Simulated assay, not measured.
Amino acid sequence: MMNVLPLVSLIKVWKQERSLGIYWKNRTDQELPEWERDWYLTCDRAGFILVHRAYIRHMKSSKVEIEDTGSYNRGKAYCAVFEDMNGKLRSLKFSSESVEKEFQQWYKKQPYGRENK
């Protein structure tokens, strides 16, 4: 079975870009450290996460979800819950607490440990 997560990620980015009127391909902040950039990008959970800082009105909470992916497969998803620019609650799921914390630090414009690429 083909993994549809990258396609879902692309659709989410497309909707976000149209709501904002700001496009990933037009970014000019590549030379800045990752935590200062307007776009947050990471590959996680067999897909990718791409979010613009202006799309997030404010962060609401963090939570851990237990996922049951089969009879013997259980795992955790670390979620950052936020209100988007349109007032809708959204969540981003991360595979580890450290990646979710990195996202929170990016949103607050605080440096984090990952090296710039």
Rank of each mutant, 00 (worst) to 15 (best):
Val8Cys: 13
Gly47Met: 05
Met2Leu: 11
Tyr78Ser: 03
Lys63Trp: 01
Glu67Tyr: 05
Asn26Leu: 13
Asn3His: 14
Ala54Asp: 12
Ile49Val: 15
Cys79Arg: 11
Phe82Asn: 00
Trp24Phe: 11
Ala46Glu: 10
Arg37Leu: 05
Ser61Asn: 09
His52Asp: 06
Trp35Gln: 05
Glu17Phe: 09
Ser95Asp: 13
Thr28Phe: 09
Glu115Gly: 01
Lys12Val: 10
Lys76Phe: 12
Arg27Thr: 08
Met2Ile: 13
His58Val: 00
Arg74Phe: 15
Lys101Arg: 15
Lys108Arg: 14
Ser95Tyr: 02
Trp39Thr: 02
Ser9Tyr: 06
Val4Asp: 09
Pro111Lys: 00
Thr42Ala: 06
Leu20Phe: 10
Val4Arg: 10
Ser9Gly: 11
Asp68Ser: 01
Ser96Leu: 04
Trp24Tyr: 12
Asn26Cys: 13
Asn86Met: 08
Val81Glu: 13
Asn116Ile: 05
Thr69Leu: 14
Asn26Glu: 15
Pro33Met: 08
Val13Pro: 01
Tyr107Cys: 03
Met59Asn: 02
Val64Phe: 04
Gly21Lys: 04
Glu17Asp: 07
Ser71Lys: 03
His58Gln: 05
Lys60Asp: 09
Asn86Asp: 11
Met59Lys: 09
His58Met: 02
Ser61Arg: 13
Leu20Ser: 10
Ala80Val: 14
Thr69Ile: 10
Trp106Arg: 10
Ser71Trp: 00
Pro111Phe: 00
Ile49Ser: 08
Ile22Leu: 12
Lys76Cys: 09
Lys63Gln: 09
Val99Leu: 15
Gly113Arg: 00
Gly70Asp: 03
Asn86Thr: 10
Lys101Asn: 14
Tyr23Val: 04
Glu67Arg: 10
Arg18Met: 09
Leu7Arg: 02
Asp44His: 08
Gly75Gln: 10
Trp24Val: 13
Asn26Arg: 14
Lys117Phe: 07
Asn73Thr: 14
Glu31Arg: 07
Val4Pro: 12
Glu65Lys: 15
Tyr72Glu: 07
Lys108Ser: 10
Arg114Ile: 00
Val51Trp: 02
Ile66Leu: 12
Thr42Arg: 02
Arg18Glu: 11
Leu50Asp: 03
Leu41His: 12
Gly21Ala: 05
Lys88Gly: 00
Thr28Gln: 15
Arg37Glu: 04
